[in-house]
Amino acid sequence: MYDVVLLTLGSGRDAPGGGCGSGDACCGGAAEKAPGQGAAETGPGRAEERCATPRVPVLTCADTLTARGARVELVTAHSDAEIDEVLARLDAPPRPDGLTWPDPDSKTRLVVATASDGQLRAVVRRLVRRYAPPPSRRPADLPANRTVPDLPPVGVLPLDPARTGGQRDLAAQLGLPRDPAAVAAAILDGTPRRLDLLRNDGGSVTLDGALLGAADDAGRPLPWRGRVEVDDAVLSAGDDPLLACAIGNSSGYAQLDGLPLLTAADPTDGLVEVAVAVPVVTRSALGRKRVRIEVRRARGRAVAVVPRDERVPYLDDGVEGELSRKRSWWTEPGAWAVWAV
C-alpha cells in the first residue's frame, strides 16, 4: 500500500503561493485582484468565490485514504524549505552522476490541497527546482526537448469542492475530481495524466496561463506597448497599443470583455497559444470613427514579450506581478502530471 502525504500550504505571511488566509480570496481573506479585473475574464481568484472550511475536505480525503489502507500524513508547509522536505520523499536512489532524480517507482504519493492555482504552481515550481539538472550536467537520459525529467504525479485536492464562483480553476479545466473521496480514489486507483509545463527565464513555471495588461478604475483596459513574438511569428512589433496579451497552456485566460482570446489552448499538445488584443479604428460609410478589437493569435514552442512601457502588470496562474524587461516562456512537453481517474 502507499504512503500518502497530504500537503497544505500554510496561512502565514511566508506561505508559498499566498496560502489560504494570507491575501487569498479563500476563507474570507482579501481577494487577489487581477490586472484588468472587471474587463478581463482572467481565471480563478475572484472576490465572490469562497472556499469551504479548508480542514473539512483535507480530513475527509485523509479518512478515505486511511480507510483504503493507505498510510496518511498531513503536512502544512509555511515555506519553500518545508515544501522541499516533503518533495525529498519522492527522490530516487542516488545516481552515479550525483543528480537528484525523481523515483518513477515511488510508493509515496503526494496530494496538494489547493485554495488557488498559485498554490499548486508553488509546489510544481519547487519540483522543477529540485529535479532540473544544471545545463552543464545535462544527462544523456533527459529527453532532447526538455530541461526536466518526468516530474512525479501530483494529486490535486481543491479546497472549494463546490466551486460556486464563475471562474474555473485548473482542476475544473482538466476535469479532475473535486469531491475529497473521489480525489482519494484517483490517488490510489488512477493513473498519471501527463501535462505540458511552461517554464520561463524568470525562474518560475506556468500551469494554466498568464494575462498581461491592466485596467482603470472603471474596468476599461489600459493600452500598453510591447513586442510579442511566438517562435518566428511576430504578433506585435512594439508599435501597437495592446489591450491584453494572453499566454495559455490551458484555457483559463481566454477572454477580454467577452471577446475570445485563446481558442485552442491544450495542455497536452506541446505548444503554447498566444493572443494579443489590439484596438483598430475604422470609419463607417458616414465617416464616423469606430473602434473594433482585433485579436492576433499564434501557437508555437516559445513566446517572448519585450515591454516598451516601463512596467506592465500581469497575472500568472493567479499570481500578480509586473513585467519590466524581456520575459520568455517555453513548453516542456509532458513534464508534470496529475493523478486522474
Rank of each mutant, 00 (worst) to 15 (best):
T191E: 14
Q255L: 14
S79G: 12
T100N: 01
G300H: 13
G203R: 05
P35L: 00
T66L: 07
W330H: 13
T263D: 05
S22T: 13
R225V: 06
T191W: 01
R325P: 00
Y131S: 10
Q37M: 10
E49Y: 06
L9K: 11
P307M: 13
R109C: 04
C27R: 14
S22G: 03
R46D: 06
G165L: 10
V86D: 04
L174K: 09
T42V: 08
D24Y: 01
D269G: 02
D63N: 13
D117R: 10
L222S: 10
R121F: 00
R126C: 10
D231W: 10
L127V: 03
P153K: 12
A34Y: 00
A171W: 07
L142R: 02
A184H: 04
A132E: 15
D189V: 01
P139I: 03
T191V: 10
V4Y: 09
K326V: 13
R46N: 07
G10V: 06
V305A: 00
A40W: 05
L65P: 11
D317K: 11
A30F: 12
T114Y: 01
V75Q: 12
S106R: 04
G248Y: 05
R193A: 08
A62Q: 13
R126L: 04
R168S: 14
L315D: 14
G23V: 08
V274Y: 11
T64G: 02
L211K: 04
D231Q: 11
G118L: 08
E32F: 01
G28E: 12
G10Q: 06
P139W: 03
D189R: 02
D201A: 02
R288K: 14
G18C: 04
Y253K: 15
L323E: 04
V156C: 14
P35A: 02
T60C: 10
D309C: 09
V156L: 15
S136P: 01
G17F: 09
L174N: 09
Y253A: 15
P152K: 09
G209V: 11
G28V: 06
G29S: 15
T191H: 14
E41V: 13
D169Q: 10
E229R: 15
G300C: 11
V124C: 06
T147Y: 01
G252K: 07
V86R: 03
V58F: 00
A337E: 10
D266P: 06
E85D: 15
V112C: 09
G29P: 12
V272T: 14
N200M: 04
D14K: 13
